[in-house]
């Protein structure tokens, strides 16, 4: 839709006075900020020697949670894959193994292309069983594209690593999650 002429407001740049044309006051203002930083407290972190602690609602690499019997919690409902705007989740569902008497369906394969992912967290939001979560792991590196296509085992291993390191994401930590942006009180 074109913008109506009545909605357009023309703004002219203010005319510079004599001092303004000299530019000296503005240069002085800038230098003041620069010099003040030399003497204030240093904020720079020396990554990677020094790693930041991120809030638990940070949206980094995914993990697939395990249930109390160490099985993958995901029930292969495809809600995450449906919600994903980047189409980077690929699931193949299958009838659950016969020994899982309480479950009917499970993901035979579960693959996320971490390179295609835009880390929006929609998948986490959509999951009806809280099986997929975004963790605080952010320093993802690999030697090839294939290495960053995470399969079910890899995603489960992220669960093991993060649980062991005590960096469970916000959902697991707080049980029922409050307003998504709030930083929960950590125990």
């Amino acid at each position: 839709m074109p913008i109506a002429a009545s909605d357009i407001k023309w703004v002219e740049a203010p005319k510079l006075g004599f001092l303004g044309q000299l530019y000296l006051p503005i240069v002085y203002d800038g230098l003041k900020t620069t010099v003040s930083h030399i003497f204030s407290k240093k904020r720079t972190e020396s990554y990677p020697e020094q790693e930041p602690t991120l809030p638990p609602n940070y949206r980094g690499v995914h993990r697939l949670n395990r249930d109390d019997q160490d099985r993958v919690k995901c029930v292969a409902c495809y809600m995450c894959a449906t919600a994903c705007p980047a189409h980077c989740i690929d699931i193949v569902a299958a009838p659950a193994p016969a020994s899982w008497t309480d479950r009917e369906k499970y993901p035979e394969t579960f693959v996320i292309d971490e390179l295609r992912c835009i880390y929006c967290g929609m998948c986490e939001e959509a999951c009806p069983v809280d099986a997929i979560e975004l963790t605080t792991l952010y320093d993802l590196t690999g030697l090839s594209r294939e290495q960053l296509i995470f399969d079910k085992e890899k995603l489960l291993s992220v669960f093991d690593i993060t649980t062991k390191a005590g960096t469970d994401p916000v959902r697991s930590r707080s049980g029922a999650l409050g307003p998504a942006s709030e930083r929960p009180v950590t125990a």
Partner: peptide, 9 residues
């Protein structure tokens, strides 16, 4: 409450 695993959903 089977909708996530139900083919009819």
């Amino acid at each position: 409450l089977d909708c996530p695993v139900c083919d009819k959903a």
